[in-house]
Amino acid sequence: MKSIRSSLYSIIWSAAIMAAASAADIGNPAPDFSATDAKGTTVSLAGMKGKIVVLEWINFGCPFVKKHYDSGNMQKLQKSYAGKGVVWVTVNSGTKASGTYLEPAEFIRKAEEKKSGASHLVIDESGAVGKAFGAKVTPHVFIVDAKGVLVYDGAVDSIKSTDPEDVEKAVNHVAKALDALLEGKPVEKAKTEPYGCGVKY
C-alpha cells in the first residue's frame, strides 16, 4: 500500500515541477514554480499572488536547521506570520540518492514531530525549484512580496553557528523583513549570506 502511494506521488511531482530557468534576483519577479506538496495540493507562486510568501529550504538532519527548530525559532516565525496572512512554504530539494530526500509521509511526520507551522511542504526532488531560486544551504530563506517580487534572499538570522542559544542574541533577518513588508515599508537588508549545510542537488 505504502509503496504504491509513494510511487504515485513521485510521478506527480516529476511531472508537475516546472520552475522558471532564470536565477532569482532581489527586486525582480520571483521565478514561478508549480509543485504538488506532500499532502497532494498544487502549490504555485502565481496561485499565491496577493500574499507574502516565504520559502524555507530544509534538511532535518542538518545541525544549522536543528538550531532553528530545537530553539523553536523557525516554528515561532511560521506560526506568528501565518496569523498575519503570510504563506510559508518549506522545501526539501535533493535527489533520492542525496540522503536528504524524504518521502511525503516521512516529510509530514517529521514536520509534525517538530510542530512545524508551514502552510506547505514541497518535495523538490529534481532540484528545479531550488536551482531557480538559487537555494544554496539549509536553512536558506527567500521572501516574495504580494506582487510576486523577490524581496529577501538569505539567512534566518545574523549569527553563523549551530548553537540554539545564539538565536536570542542574533538579529532575525526574516522577522525584520516580514515586519517591514507588513507595514508597507521596503526591506532594509534584502540579501544576507545564508549559512547552513549545502543543498544536495
Binding site: 534538511n59 538532519g61 542538518c62 545541525p63 542525496s98 540522503g99 536528504t100 544536495k200
Partner: peptide
C-alpha cells in the same frame, strides 16, 4: 567544529 561530507554535516 563542523564536519561535512558530500551528503551531510555534523557538529
Amino acid at each position: 567544529w563542523l564536519a561535512c561530507n558530500a551528503n551531510s554535516c555534523e557538529t
